[in-house]
Design a protein around this nucleic acid. Structure first.
Lengths: 347, 347
DNA sequence: CTGAAAGCGCTTACAG
DNA sequence: CTGAAAGCGCTTACAG
């Protein structure tokens, strides 16, 4: 059916070996032969059979990307950029949704890495260190951690390898400090944090970073309330309800995720609160329509382009056997209109 | 390095053929042998080498999905759902961004289909019939068209094959009729359509459907203005500016795409117009945050779940050599708050 | 400068 | 019920 190397060889009157060498530009083949072969291959529309090549070279020219959910705009944009960069380097991208489920993630990891379906995987870990990650780590698979580091216990060989994995993620330190500064300057004293799952390192980190910056500026620890969500919109709605139910509810809210920021906004409105008149809100992640929300959402934007570039760079370095550096380009706070002084300090 | 079938065979004291047969559950192998083999394979963590299997069976258990841009929320959600459904059937998904560029799309098509990298492709065509689509069609590749039909000229073999391709897309007929009804009942008389590129059949179709429904209800043709965009936000901003610059600008706008609806909203606001007080706006596609926009956007929602199910169903049917039906589940209009009577008819 | 041959890891007729 | 052998389509040492 499809045209094979054999067909090209026959028509060109050379051996298959020569076709292979000619098409790969090997200088051992004379220019005349090469040109002839290339021309015929073009005419026939020859495309090397991916599986045959993979089997022989032990390289698939494909990378896997495991995210929790492409429908999340942050991951959608990330996936898009990663695909483009990878494609430019001749790599295709196999996309998987773990759905924040460690089991599903491990299934993908095993299938893609174990089955040599891809050369390496860029993984947004759904969970702390799972068996699948352990496996990948100890078998020396090419793995890059994206957006979320993982906590690794122990000091055996596997643990050391896992710790050596490149991690690419936005650095929140400075941006969260600015968030704290914004809240405090506006005279907010009671802060509500809608956190990521605290079982994840990134969840604990964003919470702790913000709390530290807040207390450093004189906010009392007992005035900071934390309720964790699960990355999804609905969980943030529930979190806001709980935060609002307290005797002295927060006047400023921070949602640690884009989808959760949207959920928080919904819940605050539903509670009859006006933003920013009654309560202030800062989100995490940015999207092209965030400045069209009511009100335009002040948010911590991640450096998505840099993340994508660094992640692909790291995985390709790994594949090339080169050292693959971690990277944490800084997030930045984008000021829009969802923050104002709390009602009681208004004249 | 990795564990191979040979290793399993040796440890189990059987031949590779037996391992293969046992793992595939072939009844020719005795239960005792099968159990033993399965157990050892599990212990060793054996995973069949994808390329070897593909080369032998001529099936990759992978499908390609070519969309114009995963960062577009509509395609992001579609991609997510397709991946999940495909994964449940044992297929992985290779994702490609054509960027609305026919050349890039053809490159992906050729690479994936020609190189047997996937068993079939679900394609959101970036353009009218390109050489790559022609090729895929005439070579009898497994191809499903998603979201957008293509216009096929001629009546040769290739044309007939292209016309026989399954097409899965939302049916806009009824929803656009409701949009026209809404505008007319609200007493809008001058309508602006921010269309998709009119070189695409889907672009012409959405425009024509709306125009027909509008004129059927007594709107004069010369009061309907059409400016085409290119699926992107910015193009809609430009389109709105042009529409607004006319001597008798529209009082109601329809944007034929989600991203373009967002762009239209921006441009209308920037022009100092309040929605829906001064102008009304209806979008296309829906997203979880559309009801948080200012104002919440009335829009035509596509049946994304049904589209994903039908698209995967069609491609799998094709792979199985069964007839693959086209599908056009209906879109529906979601009433929110971006439409009201035009200023002049208000008391 | 080019060709014949081996082999990557599977699956599947074909024997027995 | 199981094994030996061929072959999928490439690439790459090895000869010449």
């Amino acid at each position: 059916m499809a045209v094979r190397m054999r067909d090209v060889a026959q028509l060109a009157g050379v051996s298959e070996a020569t076709v292979s060498l000619a098409l790969s530009g090997n200088p051992r083949i004379s220019a005349t032969t090469r040109l002839k072969v290339v021309k015929i291959a073009d005419q026939l529309g020859y495309r090397p059979h991916a599986a045959a090549r993979s089997l022989r070279t032990d390289s698939t020219k494909a990378i896997g990307l495991v995210v929790s959910d492409v429908a999340n705009p942050f991951f959608a944009e990330l996936a898009g950029r990663i695909e483009r960069i990878a494609a430019a380097q001749g790599y295709s991208m196999v996309l998987c949704n773990s759905d924040e489920d460690g089991r599903r993630q491990d299934g993908y990891l095993a299938g893609m890495l174990g089955g040599s379906q891809v050369d390496g995987v860029i993984l947004v870990p759904a969970d702390e260190t799972t068996p699948g990650i352990q496996n990948a780590g100890s078998s020396g698979a090419n793995l890059v951690l994206l957006d979320r580091p993982i906590a690794v216990r122990g000091n055996d060989d596997t643990a050391r390898r896992l710790r050596a994995l490149p991690v690419v993620r936005g650095s929140a330190v400075q941006a969260l400090d600015e968030v704290a500064d914004l809240f405090v300057r506006l005279r907010h004293r009671r802060i509500g944090i809608i956190a990521l799952p605290l079982s994840t390192q990134v969840g604990r980190e964003r919470r702790d970073l913000l709390i530290r910056s807040l207390t450093k500026r004189g906010v009392a620890l007992q005035d900071i309330s934390v309720v964790a969500g699960d990355f999804r919109q609905h969980s943030a709605e529930v979190a806001v309800q709980r935060l609002l139910a307290s005797p002295r509810p927060p006047t400023a809210f921070f949602a640690a995720d884009g989808l959760m920021a949207v959920g928080a906004m919904k819940a605050l409105r539903r509670a009859g609160l006006r933003i920013p008149r009654d309560v202030s809100l800062v989100g995490y992640d940015d999207a092209p329509w965030f400045d069209l929300l009511d009100p335009p959402l002040t948010t911590v934007a991640q450096p998505i382009g840099d993340l994508a570039t660094a992640a692909v760079g790291a995985i390709l370095a790994l594949l090339a056997g080169e050292p693959a550096p971690s990277a944490s380009p800084p997030c930045r706070l984008i000021h829009r209109a969802s923050c104002a002084p709390p009602p009681n300090v208004r004249p």
